[in-house]
């Protein structure tokens, strides 16, 4: 009986330690999710086109992230969360494409692999740029329209590299593609954005 009591006490201690560890982990997760949720929502909104769909995608991504990756080191959380989100956005995009085909209202966007002249894409570092020439909310609207017009992969490459500040290798891991693909998507995204913003003026 003393042995059983000892085992029970040990288990109780182990349980208390686990509860404590989970609480600490939950606080860290809460802080992390608070930090990324708004940007995640913005990314999802640009991809889904509606805030309701975007909120559903973000919630789904949060749940999947906590379920599968909460035990991973905190340093890996950001790329892992964006990987889950990117995967959910791809799924959403696929579903919408299939639905669109069935409904025969699918609006074809410009092909992702348009041949672009690399010299034409080169940036003039002295030029203030198209956004600086647009004022205030005009700039926001112009950027929103330009980003929404981008193909999903190009937009993700731009947002992850330029906005989230991930390096090429991390972006490639998040997007589950090669580093070369990331560079290609980003280059095309920058060229397309610049063109779109120039046209907007």
């Amino acid at each position: 009986m003393a042995e059983i009591a000892g085992t029970m006490a040990g288990s109780r201690l182990e349980f208390a330690r686990r509860v404590d560890a989970v609480s600490t982990n939950q606080r860290a997760l809460d802080t992390f999710l608070r930090g990324v949720e708004r940007r995640a929502l913005r990314m999802a909104e640009l991809a889904c086109g509606s805030r309701d769909d975007a909120l559903d995608v973000v919630q789904d991504a949060m749940c999947a992230f906590v379920r599968n990756y909460a035990a991973k080191p905190e340093a890996d959380w950001a790329p892992l969360f964006h990987r889950v989100l990117d995967s959910r956005l791809n799924d959403f995009h696929r579903r919408r494409t299939v639905r669109g085909r069935w409904l025969a209202v699918f609006e074809r966007k410009s092909a992702d692999d348009d041949a672009l002249d690399p010299i034409e894409q080169a940036q003039d570092m002295q030029d203030p740029g198209p956004l600086l020439r647009l004022a205030g909310s005009e700039a926001g609207k112009a950027l929103d329209v330009a980003l929404k017009a981008l193909p999903l992969r190009q937009r993700q490459a731009f947002l992850l590299r330029m906005w989230e500040g991930f390096d090429v290798a991390t972006t490639a891991r998040v997007m589950q593609c090669s580093e070369g693909s990331v560079k290609t998507h980003l280059s095309r995204a920058l060229a397309a954005l610049r063109r779109a913003l120039e046209d907007h003026q």
Binding site: V22, Q26, Q59, M62, C63, V66
Partner: peptide, 21 residues
């Protein structure tokens, strides 16, 4: 809604007493 989504995600991680016992 973002707050609710976060809470729903975190709720999955709470310790389950029966399993511990």
């Amino acid at each position: 809604r973002l707050n609710r989504a976060r809470q729903a995600a975190l709720a999955q991680q709470r310790p389950r007493t029966p399993r511990a016992w």
